[in-house]
């Protein structure tokens, strides 16, 4: 299934940061949702800003428009405010993107656990993200750092407990 671009993607003004506050608000909202859905489609969790500018996400070759780097920063900052992004380095060249926030992931995992009546059982992280049982689930293939955060959220909700095993991590759901 190929990625379906929003209508704005082929609208040249989409690639110039709009000076009108109202317009800019709408524009940034469109960008945020595009960035998240694009990464989600391609199951990407990190962005290198410079690399991303050359990717189809920010560079529309068909209409020959490229989103300027300053504007990308504005969009990413907007995502950070919403809790979907964390900078990896101080100079803000790389970032982690969570197209679902950790608590959302946590909820998804817990839903699956309770649906399959597997509360009170123990899983390794690997089983959860790459095991046969979770095949087809949305959190299948989730990167470990994000899974850890999702489970940490569940732990704070007292729905799970993270156990440190010898070479890997495990979790017990309640």
């Amino acid at each position: 299934m190929s990625f379906e671009w929003p209508w704005q993607y082929n609208f040249p003004p989409f690639y110039s940061l709009q000076p009108n506050a109202n317009t800019q608000h709408k524009q940034l909202a469109a960008w945020c949702s595009l960035v998240l859905s694009y990464l989600r489609h391609h199951k990407l969790y990190t962005i290198d800003v410079l690399e991303a500018q050359e990717s189809p996400l920010f560079h529309n070759k068909k209409i020959q428009r490229k989103f300027p780097i300053e504007a990308i920063q504005v969009v990413l900052e907007e995502l950070r405010k919403k809790g979907n992004l964390e900078w990896i380095d101080k100079s803000k060249t790389r970032c982690l993107i969570m197209w679902r926030r950790p608590e959302e992931w946590g909820k998804l995992v817990y839903q699956w656990v309770s649906k399959n009546a597997m509360t009170n059982s123990v899983f390794t992280f690997y089983e959860l993200s790459n095991g046969d049982d979770t095949e087809g689930e949305e959190f299948h293939g989730l990167e470990e750092w994000l899974l850890l955060r999702a489970l940490q959220f569940l732990q704070s909700e007292r729905k799970a407990e993270i156990i440190t095993l010898s070479d890997s991590k495990g979790v017990k759901f309640f």
Partner: peptide, 26 residues
């Protein structure tokens, strides 16, 4: 543009103005 009826496309070619679809569409 200021009142929100137009939006800009500031490319290398020139500064062009488009109808503000951001506000009117969807």
């Amino acid at each position: 543009e200021k009142v929100g009826h137009l939006c800009r496309d500031d490319s290398v070619e020139s500064l062009r103005f488009y109808p503000n679809l951001f506000l009117t569409r969807d």
